[in-house]
Design a protein around this nucleic acid. Structure first.
Length: 306
DNA sequence: CTACGCGCCTGAACGC
DNA sequence: TGCGTTCAGGCGCGTA
């Protein structure tokens, strides 16, 4: 599943292969993938056709391409959801089983002709959204101007890799909430780009339990947590950024990081490596959380008293 | 207003 | 073996 580092790899791929080109035609193969375009698939295709893509931008897991040539300045927003892919391919390439949207791009030497959106589970999608100019009042950018951001992504906070996101802004945002720590860092309006996997990894690295209350969280805890979040994203980006075929903007959302470097997520019943290095034995446990799972070490992530 | 839980989807993995 | 059930996940939205 694509998390923030994978989406950043996709954004860089769009920079290399798509930016500067014009959309010559659009084929919506499955209208469900453009359901967030409220004017419908026909309008989506018609409006997007003949626009020129001038840049590729990301915030959290939202990705968008700024479009030139529309009366209302807008972006083509893409969210990969659980299983989305953006692939740059020659027109002759066989249609993928879950091909949802196909963009034919203006010809350019050495560059394939199509940008394809593929999505098995349809949690993701593409849509057009007008650019809004707004003061960023959200945590991470108090008072700073955001010149252009799609209306559909204007409500989310700065993400983990944004320089404007700091331990202090995270601390302020957390203290404004009355909830549990893991719920809060999964809330895009607190800090964006953190999914279930990296939430567990960062909490483990920071030795914090996800059930800790945000109301009583202390600065040193948040400094460790923010550092851990940045670190886990950086490491995944370093791993993911090198493991992709040049022609693919992304491959299956998979990151080499997942297989080798997870310390908590998915490791139920396995030894906590940090405890093992201290010659202690502690097994990672799994607990139900929001209808899903949380993984943690019962020894180095102390559960708060109820 | 905030906090919380559901529904959207498919297919792999599982149980009877 | 085959068929039904469960699970995974982000995010928008409805409800309390």
């Amino acid at each position: 599943m694509p998390e923030l580092p994978e989406v950043e790899v996709v954004r860089r791929g769009l920079d290399d292969w798509v930016v500067g080109r014009t959309v010559e035609s659009v084929q919506v193969v499955d209208p469900r993938s453009v359901r967030r375009h409220l004017e419908g698939p026909t309008d989506f295709s018609a409006t997007l056709t003949s626009t020129r893509i001038t840049s590729a931008v990301r915030r959290g897991k939202f990705l968008w391409m700024i479009l030139d040539g529309l009366e209302t300045p807008s972006a083509l927003v893409a969210h990969l959801g659980m299983s989305g892919q953006l692939l740059v391919e020659e027109s002759s390439a066989t249609d993928e089983k879950h091909l949802k949207v196909r963009l034919q791009l203006s010809p350019e030497a050495e560059k394939p002709a199509e940008l394809r959106f593929i999505d098995q589970r349809i949690f993701g999608g593409m849509f057009l959204s007008p650019l809004v100019s707004t003061v960023d009042h959200l945590p991470g950018g108090v008072g700073s101007e955001i010149p252009v951001i799609p209306k559909a992504a204007a409500h989310i906070a700065r993400d983990v890799l944004d320089p404007a996101s700091t331990p202090e802004t995270l601390f302020v945002a957390l203290r404004k909430r009355t909830t549990q720590l893991k719920r809060a860092i999964l809330d895009q309006q607190v800090i964006s780009g953190v999914g279930n996997i990296y939430a567990d990894e960062a909490l483990w690295a920071a030795k914090l339990h996800g059930l800790r209350s945000t109301a009583t969280i202390r600065r040193p805890d948040v400094v460790r947590l923010h550092t851990a979040l940045v670190d886990v994203m950086d490491r995944a980006l370093a791993a993911g950024g090198t493991s992709f075929d040049a022609l693919y903007v992304n491959v299956n959302g998979a990151s080499g990081y997942f297989d080798r470097s997870l310390n908590a997520y998915g490791r139920e019943g396995k030894a906590c490596q940090r405890c093992a290095e201290a010659e202690l034995t502690s097994l990672i446990r799994r607990d139900p959380f929001m209808g899903r799972s949380s993984f943690s070490c019962p020894r180095c992530q102390r559960k708060p008293r109820p």
